[in-house]
Amino acid sequence: MVATIKGGIILIRNKTLAFFRINIVHLLRLPFVRKARNRDILSIETPEQLCCEVQEFHCGAIKRILREITSFLKGAILNTFTPAFLVILVPLLLLWELLPRFGIVNYALIPSLSTVLLTFWEMLAQRQFLHDIGDSMVKFFAGLGLAIVVAVPLGVITGWNVAIRKRILPLFQMLSPIPPPAWVPITIIFFGVGFPMQTFLIFLGSFYPILFNTFGAVKDTEPRYLASARSFGASEFTLILRVYIPSALGAIIMSIRSGVSAGLIMLVIAEMYGGSSGIGFVLNEARSFFNVPRMMVGMMTLGFIGWFLVEILKYAESKLVVWKGGR
């Protein structure tokens, strides 16, 4: 039998057993695995031995996930805060700290960095702010998730088929120029103030960028790939699944990135207009109490969340679109 393992091959007598994502290097350490003449082919004496090994791998899943998360965090932080960037960032932060402190700018309008950090610490200690962040995130992911679930398939289908495109797309092209904030009054009337209204607004904000970018990427699939798949006999369904989507995958992830930023905008707007919790609510509340440090904490939290989500998507792209980087 031959099984593909990360593109490599394992031979186990003549029985069919396919395993995916098994570390070949790890398998090579086992005594019963011998490296065949070919580099990518491993041959194993009995399938039972491999099964035991695979069970062990399932136990190690948590360990593997942890390792993955660490490597992601390390990569995200190190790639952003490079020495070249720190040369700019550190003086800027110093200016932020020193200028208000020495009274060069108005302390009441622009509190220094240390004040903001202290406020942040106090807000965290009160726990209320954590609840606010959690609330915002639940809404945000509900809206964004809904947008992805609806917009990606819609984009793929409109990109694939001209007839469906002609029937569906003009509707969205007419609706998309309406700025999402303009939907706020009517959604409040429809859904009332609360979770459904906020989720719907976030959905609306991130829906169009995801839809149009996905559509564009799928439409621009290299016709040569389609031609060769069709000449081998691919059905349209296979074509969508195995040609259109993989070739557009990078662009789809990019479109989710722009969906994230549009969604964050709508999150703040939705919470400012109607809501009793969330980061947008904190911002609004801070404005009415003229609490500038609190505002800044809210803003910085939003900035951090946006940056973090974009990093996650970048990481997902690097993991899923392996072939683009090659090597």
Binding site: G8, R39, W323, K324
Partner: peptide, 8 residues
């Protein structure tokens, strides 16, 4: 001997 390589 290039089974698991990508075309790139």
């Amino acid at each position: 001997n290039a089974l698991s390589k990508y075309p790139a």
